[in-house]
């Protein structure tokens, strides 16, 4: 297992280098000089040139690239114009927020997905079952941003139950620990639900079909004939078999969510990686854009790796060959 992980990490290094190179080239070759915004037009042209030189914008792209890679080797990601801070520092302050949101979303997704899937099986062919299978499909296909603004309209603007944006209420620093956590949770619910819904729908539907299939398989019938209790059969045989797709789905969403749920974070003003990326792009903050891509790429690769490992842990039949 350790060898597998190490192998995967080593083989993803060229991938990340390639990714960053592509983004670097795209960002630097396209029109619009990043310094235009940051230099007052009154500055004499000679001085503006000098400033460009200071940031290395006058050199060839290869030179700039070399300079940047050299910085990365020393652990520097460059300097963000808009934040007037180091890129690494900006990213480290945003990443934990994305981690909180993604973690909660995955939790919601598992709880919702599994409980609805089980309910549908328990009441097979009933009203609930129909809702899960048809409603699941509908929810899975709804546009995320539209669901987000719908929820905002209903729960935030009309009913006023949940706050519409940010992570904390104002003055939350002075709350007690429990009050602080509850406040955070309240801010989390809407965005996490939006992120969790499609995954939960997928899990519920897959779980339902799989479980129904498994329950009719020979080994379950054998177990029944041996007189094992329904509860035991369900928990130890059927469920463990049916959970595999759940884990795969969760694994793939980890990477996506951690890279920053761009649309959801933007709508809910969540101060995470997604919103950081968008604002960097709008402000043409080149070093920050490249930094965000680097992080997003690494996270997606790690997410896929986690999915693979979990998959293997649950189902040892899958061989590690060829990876």
């Amino acid at each position: 297992m350790i060898r597998l992980i190490l192998g995967r990490i080593v083989s993803s290094i060229p991938l990340i280098v390639g990714l960053v190179t592509i983004v670097f080239i795209i960002v630097r070759l396209l029109p619009g000089d990043p310094m235009t915004i940051y230099i007052s037009p009154a500055v004499p042209p000679a001085v503006a040139e000098q400033l460009r030189a200071e940031f290395g914008f006058d050199k060839s792209i290869i030179h700039q690239y070399g300079r940047w890679i050299w910085g990365v080797m020393r652990g520097e990601l460059g300097f963000s114009f808009t934040h007037q801070r180091g890129v690494a520092e900006v990213i480290t302050s945003a990443f934990p927020n994305t981690l909180i949101l993604a973690g909660t979303a995955i939790l919601f997704q598992l709880i919702l997905g599994i409980s609805l899937g089980l309910l549908a099986v328990r009441f097979h062919k009933s009203f609930i079952d129909k809702i899960v299978s048809v409603g699941g499909l509908i929810i899975y296909t709804l546009p995320t941003f539209w669901v987000a603004i719908l929820l905002l309209y209903v729960f935030s603007y009309t009913l006023g139950i949940f706050p519409s944006s940010q992570m904390h209420s104002i003055g939350a620093d002075e709350f007690g620990r429990i009050e602080y956590l509850l406040d955070l949770l309240k801010h989390l619910i809407l965005p996490a639900t939006v992120l969790a819904l499609p995954g939960a729908a997928a899990i519920a539907r897959y779980l339902r079909t799989n479980l129904l299939d498994v329950l009719h398989e020979q080994f379950i019938i054998n177990a029944r004939s041996m007189g094992l209790s329904e509860r035991k059969i369900f928990l130890s045989y059927a469920l463990s078999n049916a959970l595999i797709p759940t884990i795969t789905i969760t694994g793939t969403t980890i990477g996506i969510l951690l890279a920053g749920a761009i649309v959801t974070e933007t709508i809910f003003s969540w101060p995470g990686m997604g919103r950081l990326t968008v604002s960097a792009i709008f402000a043409r903050d080149y070093p920050l854009i490249i930094g965000c891509t680097l992080v997003a790429g690494i996270v997606v690769i790690i997410g896929n790796l986690i999915a693979d490992i979990m998959y293997r842990v649950v189902d040892p039949r899958i061989r590690t060959e060829g990876l």
Binding site: I289, G297, V300
Partner: peptide, 23 residues
């Protein structure tokens, strides 16, 4: 296939946003 992996590693919306913003 490495090429394919590379494109998969870029979060797609991110790729799109960057390109649209600049192109």
């Amino acid at each position: 296939m490495r090429f394919v992996d590379l494109f998969i590693a870029i979060p797609s919306l991110f790729l799109v946003i960057t390109l649209v913003a600049f192109l």
